[in-house]
């Protein structure tokens, strides 16, 4: 998913009208069925018993703990992945070395792997029966079934977003501005802050928005490593599952409505940033 759009194609203007309208109708039907309807359902069920019940569900102690945990995990995973992503993109686009293709594939690995497997990897690594298990137990360090494990699993699953957004962007931009900065006497760090970061700023923000959205909504990987300790290691998605299974449908959807609101907010931000990026690309001095 990238913000880069190709120049407007004029092919569409040559398609027959009926084709254009049918395609539009199909697309709208799809969006309505798979996106709008479920979204409406979420809000419908959430407020079905009135605003008070909704509020009660959301300020419930376990719900608040889940919200706090979700935000904490995102607050750690997203900055980590931002740093990793920028470093990885820099490495891939500014250096040539053997195995670069392999590195790029590895960056995409979390997309290819089922989130449940991702969680399992960490259990196998850090669980009591895992590789590092005995060492961790001896030093009384809790990773799996505790917050660090959730952070790790979430970081893994959301890793590619920033890198994937930056790599094509930085490749397209080329490195001449950075080279200019170097010849003008800038240190590596100075060059990065004054030249590279402003160049990739909007693309970076776009990637961060996506990364954040995924971090907040992650279910599978977190479910495996969480331990499901109520009030402690349940994130919002997990807590919603718990509520639903307890026949507390309204409460479940109430918390889910928060996630849905957040999703809508993400979409709006993404659109704004994407629009900004396209505007900049259009007025950019020709490379």
């Amino acid at each position: 998913m990238s913000a880069h759009l190709p120049r407007k194609s004029s092919v569409a203007l040559r398609d027959p009208r009926w084709l254009r309208w049918s395609l539009l109708a199909i697309a709208l039907a799809f969006v309505a069925l798979f996106l709008v309807l479920p979204l409406l359902a979420v809000f419908g069920y959430a407020f079905e018993k009135g605003l008070d019940v909704w509020r009660a569900a959301v300020v419930d102690e376990e719900a608040r703990a889940a919200i706090r945990l979700t935000l904490l995990v995102a607050a750690i995973a997203v900055p980590l992945n931002t740093v990793f992503g920028v470093a990885a993109a820099w490495l891939v686009t500014r250096y040539s070395f053997r195995g670069k293709g392999l590195l790029v594939s590895l960056i995409d690995l979390p997309f290819a792997v089922s989130p449940v497997i991702a969680g399992l990897i960490y259990v196998l690594l850090f669980g009591k029966q895992g590789w590092l298990g005995p060492w961790l137990a001896d030093h009384d360090v809790k990773i799996i079934f505790a917050v660090p494990g959730i952070v790790l699993a979430t970081t893994f699953v959301t890793f590619p977003f920033v890198a994937r957004e930056l790599i094509p962007l930085m490749q397209a931009q080329g490195g001449d501005e950075e080279r200019a900065a170097i010849t003008l006497g800038a240190s590596g760090w100075s060059m990065f802050w004054r030249v590279t970061l402003p160049k990739i700023g909007w693309g970076l923000l776009y990637g961060v928005i996506l990364c954040n959205a995924r971090a907040i909504g992650e279910f599978g990987a977190v479910s495996v490593v969480s331990g499901h300790i109520r009030g402690l290691t349940n994130t919002m998605p997990l807590h919603i599952e718990v509520l639903y299974n307890e026949y507390q449908r309204t409460a479940a959807f109430a918390v889910a409505s928060l996630l849905a609101l957040f999703a809508l907010l993400t979409l709006v931000l993404k659109q704004i940033v994407g629009w900004r990026m396209r505007r900049i690309a259009a007025t950019e001095p020709d490379a």
């Binding site: 001449d176 501005e177 080279r179 200019a180 900065a181 170097i182 010849t183 003008l184 006497g185 800038a186 240190s187 004054r194 030249v195 402003p198 160049k199 950019e284 001095p285 020709d286 490379a287």
Partner: peptide
Amino acid sequence: ARQRHVGFVFQHYALFNHLSVFENVAFG
């Protein structure tokens, strides 16, 4: 390159697009 004190002019200018003309020149 940083230590060599050479001035380099690129074919496609490589100006810092987010900086004004003044700031570009002042960069070094």
